[in-house]
Design a binder for these strands. Sequence first.
RNA 1: GUGGGCGUAGCUCAGCUGGUAGAGCACUCGGUUGUGGUCCGAGAUGUCGCGGGUUCGAGCCCCGUCGCUCACCCCA
Length: 418
Amino acid sequence: MKFEKLAAPKGVREYLPPESQAFEWVREQLIYPAKLAGYQLMELPVFEDTALFNRGVGESTDVVSKEMYTFEDRGGRSITLRPEGTAGVMRAVIESNLDRGQLPVKVWYSGQFFRAERPQAGRYRQFYQVGIEAIGIDDPALDAEVIAIADQGFKNLSLKNYRLEITSLGDAPSRAAHRVDLMKFIEKLDLDEATRARAELNPLRIFDDKRPEIKNAMQDAPILMDYLSEYSRAHFEKVKSYLDQLNIAYTVNKRMVRGLDYYTGTTFEFVHDDLGAQSGIGGGGRYDGLMEVLGGQALSGIGFGLGVDRALLASIAENTLPTENFTSDLYIIPLGEEMKAFALTVAAKVRIQGFTAEVAFGDRSLKGSMKGADKSGARFVAVIGETEKESGSVELKRMSDGTLISVKIEELQKVLSA
RNA sequence: GUGGGCGUAGCUCAGCUGGUAGAGCACUCGGUUGUGGUCCGAGAUGUCGCGGGUUCGAGCCCCGUCGCUCACCCCA
């Protein structure tokens, strides 16, 4: 009986050895600056009550309207696999009253997110993000720091070909004023039905359309930046000034739109130039009304999400990944069945001292085992037989040049650390 | 959801105007189980993505389907 092979679900991105090592490295580089800045881990569920995203992310967004993995659980509850991180963080902060302590609440997260889109380069149905949120303080200096932390993450990857674009989406009064004029403008355009429907829900969306005819039509559309309230304008000026003083390069993109409805005020996006169509490697912004909409206090917050998959693609494109592969310090070959227990003992001793040690398993010939050792890339090899067991010392073979070094088992670390 | 390209060995691919499947690399074993890389020898591996059609005959032509991939819509 032969069974049919199974494949991973469509659109998921898996990271297997040896590539997984690069993935792990990228993820750690991206989030490390946040740890250094005092952000603390928040480990959250990957599924939430569907209402959280409907209300938090916004019904008008594509994410909610057509990209969510939603299902009914066994208790008849509507559950959704998280399509983004911020809403879940806010829910948890409100639920556990983290915002009743000192502000801002500063947390980071890392994990997989889910959107049911047609896959393409850099876009997956399950993808990885790291992110931070700073909740409860509306201070332009905090905006600048959040942006700086994201930027440092990309710098840690030695990336060069990326840009930071920023804008201000203003406060509620700014947006209301702009919306009136923008709607008037859009009404006059000749748009297809789908596009017009999107415009009705959120007219800003149309700025994001890549089709040339739409871009042309939107050339003279009223720009939100020109409608900013005094407060929003001053806030944004300060953010820019802080970024200047931090020597963080940016361009103001007055037409930038983000796909999540909760953004207000400072909003930003990191774009990489070598990635093809899906070029956003990270983005974020401030969200004034989100917490209140989710049943919490009326506190402002700001955060970002960085795409680990895309950051990895960018690192590959710019060839900035570290070249060292995973290799063991010591590869132990037991000579025959009776020596296996002893080999395991020696390996355990070495590992306790912080070195990586592998044992040759199976019953290959010595030559075969040596080949295995060679392919594993191990720095040293020890063949262990009767002689070694009795004398308590082994001959370490340094694979780089083939020299043999006789050493007592108790003193292995001296050679291995050299 | 819409459109383009592509599915042959583990990988990269070849396969003539349709005649019954190959190379390189990788892998396993051996060249008297106490020392790897080179060399030599041997070996295993495919329902040619899947289903149907045309044909005496299909990896090749036609239809469908699934998957991958790129782009649109969108976004990390």
